[in-house]
């Protein structure tokens, strides 16, 4: 199983996105978040990634923006923790 999926933009454009993480955040139980990338390089060392709320609909999923600033802070912390954990696992 690979980690790529096909998603549709509001303009009905279909994009292949690579999912890096699906996670939840303490204090926001019941919500899933998704971290993904389109492979866009920003410079030699950095790449652009995107974070959205993953909402389950009747026949699919919707990736929506995180509007709450407090929620966004918590999500950032969760991502940092996941990055640190991934770094540790990679170094083992």
């Amino acid at each position: 199983m690979n980690n790529k999926i096909i998603a549709t933009t509001p303009d009905n454009e279909q994009l292949e996105i690579e999912v890096l993480d699906i996670f939840s955040v303490v204090g926001y139980e019941g919500k899933d978040y998704i971290l993904y990338t389109l492979g866009e390089e920003m410079d030699q060392d950095h790449e652009r990634a995107y974070v959205s709320i993953l909402e389950e609909k009747d026949n699919g999923y919707s990736l929506t923006e995180i509007n709450d600033s407090k929620e966004w802070q918590e999500v950032q912390k969760a991502i940092e923790e996941d990055i640190a954990m991934a770094e540790d696992e990679n170094n083992e």
Partner: peptide, 16 residues
Amino acid sequence: KYAVAIRGARAVAMPK
């Protein structure tokens, strides 16, 4: 059979 619709996101710059 499952559609995935992008409605919004927050972009971040992450090290490769």
